[in-house]
Design a protein around this nucleic acid. Structure first.
Lengths: 338, 338
DNA sequence: CTGTTAGCGCCTTCAC
DNA sequence: GTGAAGGCGCTAACAG
């Protein structure tokens, strides 16, 4: 029952040559409109279904771009994906989405499969485990254009689209300070990832600006799970100086902390003010008065895609590594009900 | 710079035939281990990268399954996708994920691209706009196995993996009744989608069981946006009989309603109790005491994939349409703090 | 165990 | 404007 209609079948049915059919199907200007019409209607009649495998093989290129994210369920990434899809769709490209689940092994496998499928290019945000770049260097040598977004590696000639995390961390911390906080905790993440390193740097920079001593025991590393937030909150509360502010570099941990604080009967933000760094809508929902640092996911997706498409279409190898840095914005929500 | 190494290149370098190389690369038992080793190391040395386009074309099959969901950012769907990926990965299949964004046109395009790429099979949850099945019938005639999950259409010979929504709606409503609610509002969705029709049926069934008159004005259709929730909440509050309970068939609308109620100073659940039907973690977060109907997304993904793979591997055309019905569960969260 | 042969379905010169 | 011919990279008979 499998569809077997090929251009030859429809050529035979019309007593013409397959090459003409091919041209017609690709809407080549060098074919008579009448024959085009006949071909199209016959193709329809026979239930012809173009075989992209063959076409792509012959042309030695595809119009598919691969996207690798740690997890599609994270709001930031799914908003980036929306941006990617929109930009890709406009340019006539398909998108195939893959998740590394924060595992290096899976990231490697995925890169392999994408290359084997001859994708036109790849957009990726590396996993937390990615400290070995062989698979990426391999992709580079292979000649497949790719681009990092949000989480990147330093590889010569490879561009990135990033957020100004130092500034974001600074803004978050400054906001807490200006609201009277003096003992500010910080939930960070793996320092291998520059986003967490940079947010921490912003945190420290703000403390310095306001002459608040930096106390390392207030900085906790998490691995982006809710449990890290609850555990972290507990740890912070056990310190001699009680904290009055918390800057979390990711929302999931912030949520864990909020739950813990609430369970302990600690009022937010009166007793402990919190700023979360992410755009999970969840943080807005948990407490509508919560201030967050918003990341422009959709925009990142669009920009990354446009840059990637430029590289794909650029036959010249003059590509210079660009870093596009976007700004996040501090969003202070309505707190009139407080 | 594009990688051009083919099996012929490596065959030539070793003065053997390409077919042997092909066999070795596919780990055929009919190749001497020594030559295998030579081939593998040479392949590595030349930076050989298998071309799946050619391989798949030749074999006339791929090991890729396509997944179409309305939106990957909805938690239910991303948990289904996790389940799909796990099961597919175990069976040596790749997954390509696509979003219809609830648009029929996009759904059609996606089906077309997947077929053109000769995916081995497709798993899909239809868009809200899907009232025309041509593209699906086309896929069926084409001989590509597919399966619905969660949102399905009645197409002969096509199986579905569903949740018992009547029961879920009944459970939700009964829970409210048993907690003393007498005027229970219901946020429903497009009645084209059987999930919403069924949840409504469950709601009515529960009312009947407890001899509570069904009042149509308490049932509001939403299109799954937060704004529908706030508007709906407003509408319900404007009715002469004040509601004391709300069963929302989707969480997004429930969230909108909760925000509205909170802004109006209405205490939840004391004045209005709410049960949300979905497993967005968001509903748990907004109010840890909230009772929800939990849907087994991960499990649905796994089961769907296994069934699809069975159909793919079944050469016989004896397939009967199966409906696998899973149960959702009512989760009453800790409300000790109240 | 390994080589020979013949395509998979399509596109792209090159003729006319 | 259309046809003829060749090949993209790989695999699956069929031989030996």
């Amino acid at each position: 029952m499998k569809n077997k209609t090929t251009i030859h079948d429809i050529a035979k049915a019309l007593s013409i040559d397959a090459s003409t059919v091919s041209r017609a199907l690709n809407n080549s200007p060098r074919v008579n409109q009448k024959t085009k019409d006949r071909i199209l209607s016959k193709a329809n009649e026979l239930g012809y279904q173009r075989n992209l495998l063959a076409s792509n093989l012959r042309k030695n290129k595809t119009n598919t771009i691969g996207v690798i994210v740690p997890r599609i369920s994270r709001h930031f990434f799914s908003s980036v994906i929306s941006g990617i899809e929109e930009a890709a769709y406009d340019a006539g490209y398909n998108v195939i989405i893959c998740q590394s689940l924060e595992q290096l092994k899976r990231e490697r496998d995925i890169v392999g499969t994408l290359l084997a499928n001859r994708v036109a290019g790849v957009l990726l945000s590396v996993s937390m485990e990615t400290n070995d770049y062989d698979h990426l260097l391999n992709m580079k040598n292979n000649g497949t254009p790719f681009l990092f977004f949000d989480r990147h590696c330093d590889i010569e000639g490879i561009s990135s689209v990033l957020i100004d995390d130092v500034q974001g961390g600074f803004d978050a911390t400054e906001h807490l300070i200006l609201n009277g906080c003096k003992n500010i905790g910080h939930f960070s993440g793996p320092q291998k990832l520059s986003i967490y390193k940079n947010r921490l740097a912003g945190y420290i920079k703000a403390l310095e600006k306001y002459k608040i001593p930096y106390r390392p025991e207030l900085v906790l590393r998490s691995s982006l799970m809710e449990i890290d937030g609850t555990e972290g909150a507990k740890t912070l509360l056990s310190l001699p100086h009680k904290i009055d502010g918390l800057f979390s570099a990711n929302d999931i941990a912030a949520i864990g902390a909020m739950k813990y604080f609430k369970n302990e009967g600690i009022r937010i933000p009166d007793e402990i003010a919190i700023v979360g760094f992410s755009n999970e809508p969840i943080s807005e929902v948990i407490d509508p008065s919560l201030t967050t640092i918003d990341q422009p996911g959709f925009q990142i997706g669009q920009i990354s895609t446009k840059l990637l498409l430029e590289e794909i279409n650029k036959s010249s190898n003059l590509k210079k590594a660009n870093k596009t840095i976007l700004k996040s914005s501090l969003i202070e929500r309505d707190s009139s009900r407080k």
